[in-house]
Design a protein around this nucleic acid. Structure first.
Lengths: 208, 208
DNA sequence: CGCGAACTTGCAGCGACTGCAAGTTCATTT
DNA sequence: AAATGAACTTGCAGTCGCTGCAAGTTCGCG
């Protein structure tokens, strides 16, 4: 009964279910193997074998080996854009961005285990770091446009929107790094707040 | 006379000269071809053929095709570390970083032509963007340690040094992007100064 | 001049990745 | 329930990035 839930546009079928399973199996195997051996000591054949599919099928799910490890993370971009657009008229830009970022924070804290594995892998294979950073690049481009539209300026002519987005993105990355290095003993949200506070204060010259 | 100049440790010989030529020919060909056709429409064979060497030799000069296009840029890291360490005791952290960054600014404005070609290539093939950003990662790691040492704090326990470096790095990247988008009609140094000013003011909520 | 080191090159091979042409599985229609 | 068509998986063959190895060649230096 009640086969169609209202929560999400999820056309549940035997097929789509299996796709989700396969995808999860692939990322899980990729993450586990790469955390154990290191990224380049794991072949696509290894991953697909561990997930029980053919190597060719692996590339039907992910465009590259890196994608399987680092994930897409493009999902939250749209939600963030909507949230930001609704917040902007009511408060300063920096504050709106801070609150919008909390969406990503929540998603990461929910996916805690996978993120720690990712940290492990990236720590062992720093070559992956740029790709991980790029995950946010699309989000930053979108965010820049939203802010520019709100301010009514051309994002190319004025550097302010891009500057806000780039620096807050950097602050977020620092907080995330500290979170992972602390093994999650600290709250990601608190670390993000701390970074945004320093940023809003103009990075004043006080260390401790 | 004066065969050994004091400026650099440059053991000039027929051999080293040819190496420089070959290296320049490879980067030049890579940059030109990739700007014309796009990064993945150019093979290593194409580049090495255009430079007049064998494909195998290409990999004696560069570890990857990306390296040939984006370059190393690790040279200025050491100079920047020294400069920063000498500036830190005399002024606020943010100001010291701003002045140290001017070294990189000068290097980029001197290598203007190559940088515009790189912009062209990265614009056509955004996959290269993360690698370009990573170029600064090593510099950022070093800079973070210098600041942490100056402040006498553990860079892992306190987020401040990493935050300063990451955000200033982001600000610099925004300025560099605007510089390239403007086709060099604006001064890179002026754009960097503008970004640092906004940053020091705490990204206040004013657009124009 | 002759020796050793540095540089180039071809070859053989691994692994990431892709297009194509099956074969298989499932949802849907009648 | 059977038939139809779409979606998904898979093997195959091939390209390209990249590497180690073992020559061959060039150059610096005594």
């Amino acid at each position: 009964m009640v086969p169609d839930v209202h929560s999400d546009a999820a056309p549940l079928g035997r097929r789509d279910l299996r796709k989700q399973q396969t995808r999860a199996a692939l990322t899980g195997a990729a993450l586990r193997l790469c955390a154990e051996r290191g990224f380049d000591q794991v072949t696509v054949d290894d991953i697909s074998a561990a997930a029980g599919v053919s190597p060719r099928t692996f590339f039907n799910y992910f465009a590259s080996k890196e994608d399987a490890v680092l994930g897409d993370h493009l999902v939250e971009v749209d939600a963030m854009r909507v949230r930001l657009a609704s917040l902007l008229p009511a408060m300063p830009v920096l504050e709106a961005v801070r609150r919008a970022v909390l969406l990503v924070v929540a998603a990461m804290e929910a996916d805690r285990d996978h993120w720690f594995l990712r940290m492990e892998v990236v720590h062992r294979s720093p070559q992956l770091l740029p790709r991980l950073v790029l995950s946010g690049a699309e989000a930053e481009r979108v965010t820049t446009e939203v802010i520019a539209a709100h301010l009514g300026v051309d994002p190319l002519a004025h550097g302010y929107p891009a500057l806000v987005v780039a620096t807050t993105g950097a602050a977020f990355r620092v907080a995330a790094t500290r979170w992972m290095e602390a093994g999650g003993r600290l709250s990601l949200g608190a670390l993000v707040d701390e970074a945004f506070t320093d940023l809003a204060a103009g990075l004043p010259d006080r260390a401790v």
